[in-house]
């Protein structure tokens, strides 16, 4: 925990805020925004906006955890705004070659009768919750997300990180709900495959 030696800012209601607190949050916020926006400059802007809003609105938070949660909520809203603005200029429904590639890889997991082919049947990941405690797992998790095609990843993160309902996603991005489900299914399959290959198959087998 970073403490001491930091400049203090007097919030509008006279709440003393530690600059170090916001500084400590910044790198994670930037990484989170970059992952979703795939535009470093925009990500910096969005985080800056969120931090300014956080500083301006800081009112007696009962402890650091509550404050952090609140800053994250601001960041999520700012990212959602940026995605909304940007979605007007991109065609989400168009299938990029990368997405077609993912669909082909998915189809290849099955026999002609649409049941798993023996070599690609999903394996038992053992106790995957243990992985959530490992820093190395999160590096693989981020790498797998970065590996997704842009639109696929954006919709997945809107759903899972920003916690939009699919109906909201459809509306924001002007796609059908059927298409939304197809894209989320594609994203989850790709992530599942990536985690299996890059993490779970590399660790100890627990068959």
């Amino acid at each position: 925990m970073q403490r001491g030696g930091n400049a203090v800012t007097e919030g509008q209601d006279g709440v003393i805020m530690d600059d170090g607190l916001l500084r400590a949050l910044r790198p994670g916020m930037i990484r989170f925004a970059r992952l979703q926006l795939r535009d470093d400059e925009l990500a910096e802007d969005v985080v800056q906006d969120a931090l300014m809003a956080a500083m301006a609105g800081a009112k007696g938070f009962a402890g650091r955890a509550a404050f952090n949660t609140w800053v994250l909520a601001i960041l999520r809203n700012k990212i959602a705004d940026a995605i909304r603005l940007r979605s007007r200029s991109i065609n989400i429904s168009a299938l990029a070659p990368e997405e077609e590639g993912l669909d082909q890889a998915f189809e290849a997991l099955f026999k002609p009768n649409a049941h798993w082919s023996p070599q690609s049947r999903p394996r038992d990941w053992g106790d995957p919750e243990d992985s959530l405690q490992r820093d190395q797992f999160w590096i693989v998790f981020e790498a797998c997300l970065k590996h997704l095609p842009e639109n696929t990843s954006r919709i997945f993160m809107m759903r899972e990180f920003l916690e939009f309902d699919t109906s909201e996603i459809c509306k924001e991005l002007a796609i059908s709900s059927g298409n939304c489900h197809v894209i989320l299914h594609r994203a989850r399959n790709a992530l599942r495959g990536c985690l299996e290959q890059s993490w779970f198959d590399k660790g100890e087998q627990t068959c």
Partner: peptide, 10 residues
């Protein structure tokens, strides 16, 4: 998503 606000990972 929740861990973004935890400085220990940042």
């Amino acid at each position: 998503a929740a861990s973004v606000s935890r400085a220990d990972r940042n």
